[in-house]
Amino acid sequence: MPELPEVEIIRRVLLPQIQGAVIQTVSVTRPEVVAHPDADKFCRQLTGQKIHNMTRRGKFLTVLLVSGDSLSLHLRMTGCLLLVPPDNPMKKHTHVMFQLDNGKELRFSDPRRFGRFWLLERDEADTYSGAGSLGVEPLESSLTAAYLKTSFYRRKRPVKECLLDQKSIAGIGNIYSDEILFSAQVHPSRTANSLTDDEWKRLAEEIPKVLNYFIEKSAVTPEEFLQGTGQDYRNTAFLRVYGREGEPCPMCGTTLRKTVIAGRSSVFCPHCQPMNALSK
């Protein structure tokens, strides 16, 4: 699933190419990917609209239209948003197409069909997508050690599970939670109520640092993005622990181990991230 860095890269690649463009036609081949309103109204209402901006909130992308309407998208597990020339071969499982007046087509494909669109009219409350219940943006100043401690310190759940809670922190998924916990030297299975003040501080420092690092390392040009069909751009060479169980720790050389937390795999270094850290 694309996480915050990947969604941010999509925004940065697409925005300069679609800003100011007018949507000439819209076609939907799988109506279920349009969660609100129905697919017919979705197509009618978007036709003729001019794109003003594109923003990101957690893992959500939102296209802001000059009219005040807004189009939100969550890619979920396998969604892909790609801007292509009209003669570009149609990608399999393409479900929504926007023909723009700049000669390009914005296409959404999704093999598993879990991704969803929501079109909201100007001043319409978003009671549909769930974006309104998201927690703080991890790249903003509101994410502090005090916020993390207040949100989690009474919980007996593993800290890894807490980082995945979108209602507390928006945008962190399985990959970058591993990288964050490794950088902060916190074992993923530690219960949140066992963390020390120093560990909360390290987490608050490492969360934006790690996410910004991977945004930087995954940056691509529009040409590279298109060549990778909008998906092959995560720079896995810079992942230090995720997916590397059995390899030596890049810090100390200890063999990295894998555990399962809340049904999700988690890789850690037993030396750099000791389970028996003292509570404060």
Rank of each mutant, 00 (worst) to 15 (best):
S194K: 13
F268Y: 07
Q49E: 06
D87W: 15
K160I: 03
F98M: 02
D101Y: 10
K91D: 14
D165V: 05
R190Q: 12
R44G: 07
G228Y: 03
R264S: 00
V241Y: 04
K280N: 14
P89Q: 10
L256V: 01
G103T: 00
K280W: 15
V136L: 05
E137T: 06
P274S: 08
L164K: 13
Y147H: 09
C162Y: 04
N212P: 01
G173N: 00
S183I: 09
F152I: 10
V96H: 09
E124K: 10
N102Q: 04
P37L: 07
H95K: 13
R12W: 11
L75W: 08
V210T: 09
E205R: 11
E199G: 03
W200C: 00
A237Y: 07
P248G: 00
A21K: 06
R12Y: 03
K209A: 14
Q19C: 09
M77Q: 09
F114N: 02
T191S: 10
K59N: 11
V13F: 02
T255V: 10
D197M: 06
E121S: 11
F225L: 05
H74W: 04
K91W: 10
E3Q: 00
E140M: 15
Y128D: 14
H52Q: 15
A146T: 12
F114E: 02
V13L: 00
W200S: 02
A237L: 05
L119A: 07
Q185F: 04
E247L: 15
T196W: 15
Q49S: 07
Y213H: 15
I261Q: 12
N212V: 04
S194H: 13
F152Q: 07
S183V: 08
E140H: 15
C162H: 10
V96Y: 11
P86E: 13
V34Q: 06
D165M: 04
I207Q: 00
L181P: 08
S27K: 12
I261W: 11
V159A: 05
T255P: 04
S70C: 10
I207N: 04
Q24L: 13
T254G: 09
C162I: 03
R155H: 13
S109K: 02
